[in-house]
Amino acid sequence: MHAFLDKNRTQAAPVSVDFPLISNQETWMNIALIKQYHENMPKDESQQFVFTCLRRLGIEHVAFKRIVALSEEEAFCVMLLRAAMIQKAIIVIDRPFIIIPHLKDVCFIFQMLEKINDLYYSCHVYDYKWMADKYGDLCQ
């Protein structure tokens, strides 16, 4: 995965426990940061954009929360949105069941990806072989 990230440096957008959210910022700022930094999008505009995205995932109530106050699913969604903020993002999800350990299958992840499918270019999921059954038909 690391090699993949290096290969697609401009588009790669990791979602991983190794790349945590910034703990001293509110949720919306974690997401908006990418737009503000790479596209120099004004704060208010980026804030509105992030709110829209959060609404799409049904978690707009977490906008002003700090990271420690989020549930595992909410934290995953925020990480996913942050990754999707990269232009033509190639989202790389690294071991999603470590981010959300109690998840039975990958359906929740796919549902979230479906909701924001217009925000990214492609998505890659990396996980252990022994977790294959959680991915169902996708691994066949």
Binding site: M1, H2, D18, R95, L113, N117, Y120, Y121, S122, C123, H124, V125, Y126, D127, Y128, K129, M131, A132, Y135, L138, C139
Partner: peptide
């Protein structure tokens, strides 16, 4: 837009 799922055997430990 594409969607891929890659499963690998070993977990990469990132260079710290």
């Amino acid at each position: 837009m594409s969607f891929k799922c890659i499963i690998f055997n070993t977990c990469v430990k990132y260079n710290d």
